[in-house]
Amino acid sequence: MPRKSVPLRIDPAVYNAIAAWANQEMRSVNAQIEVMLRENLRKAGRLPKDTGEIPKRGRPKNPKSQT
């Protein structure tokens, strides 16, 4: 399923706190926000069972180069 793009308005101090946390976890800010959202949905019992994994970082492997 294609990923959904969502614009987000956020307080700069909150963004900076998330960015610092993301840096410590070696994630992008976008990935950190998704991790935070998923964790809270899971804790609230609201994460859909068919939710896929967060995509791995970096470029996908080129199947042609694996010969």
Results as ranks from 00 to 15, higher is better:
Ala22Tyr: 02
Ile33Thr: 08
Asn23Ser: 15
Ala22Ile: 03
Ser28Tyr: 08
Met26Ile: 00
Leu8Thr: 06
Arg38Val: 03
Gly58Pro: 02
Gly58Leu: 09
Arg38Tyr: 07
Ala19Val: 02
Arg57Lys: 13
Asp50Ser: 06
Glu53Gly: 05
Val14Thr: 13
Asp11Val: 05
Pro7Glu: 04
Leu41Pro: 02
Ala19Trp: 02
Arg42Ala: 15
Glu53Gln: 14
Arg38Pro: 01
Glu39Ala: 13
Tyr15Arg: 14
Arg27Glu: 01
Ala20Leu: 13
Pro55Ala: 08
Ile18Ser: 04
Leu41Arg: 05
Arg42Asn: 06
Asn30Phe: 01
Pro60Ala: 13
Gly45His: 05
Pro60Ile: 09
Lys43Val: 07
Arg46Trp: 07
Thr51Arg: 09
Asn62Val: 11
Glu34Ser: 07
Arg57Leu: 04
Tyr15Asn: 07
Pro60Val: 12
Leu41Ala: 12
Ala31Glu: 09
Lys61Glu: 14
Asp50Leu: 03
Pro12Cys: 04
Pro48Cys: 03
Pro7Trp: 08
Glu53His: 10
Lys49Ser: 05
Gln24Ala: 15
Asn62Ile: 10
Val6Leu: 14
Arg57Asp: 08
Glu53Trp: 06
Gln24Arg: 15
Arg27Pro: 01
Arg46Thr: 03
Ala13Asn: 10
Asn40Glu: 14
Met36Phe: 05
Arg9Lys: 12
Asn30Leu: 01
Pro12Trp: 06
Asp11Phe: 04
Leu47Arg: 02
Asn40Leu: 05
Val14Leu: 14
Ala20Gln: 14
Glu34Phe: 00
Lys61Phe: 08
Arg46Gln: 11
Met26Phe: 01
Ser5Lys: 12
Ala31Ile: 02
Val6Cys: 07
Val14His: 10
Pro63Trp: 06
Ala17Gln: 12
Leu47Met: 08
Gly52Met: 08
Ala17Val: 08
Ser28Val: 05
Ala17Cys: 02
Tyr15Gly: 00
Asn30Thr: 14
Asn62Ala: 11
Leu37Tyr: 00
Met36Leu: 15
Met36Gly: 03
Arg57Gln: 11
Lys49Phe: 00
Arg57Ala: 14
Ala44His: 09
Val6Phe: 11
Ser28Ile: 04
Pro60Phe: 10
Ile33Gln: 03
Asn40Gly: 01
Met26Ser: 09
Asp11Gln: 11
Ile18His: 02
Ala17Tyr: 02
Lys61Met: 12
Glu34Val: 14
Met36Ala: 11
Ala44Pro: 03
Trp21Ala: 15
Gly45Met: 05
Lys56Pro: 03
Gly45Ser: 05
Arg42Asp: 09
Lys61His: 12
Asn23Met: 13
Leu8Pro: 02
Asp50Gly: 01
Lys61Ala: 13
Lys61Gln: 13
Ala20Lys: 14
Ala31Arg: 12
Thr51Met: 10
Asn30Ile: 01
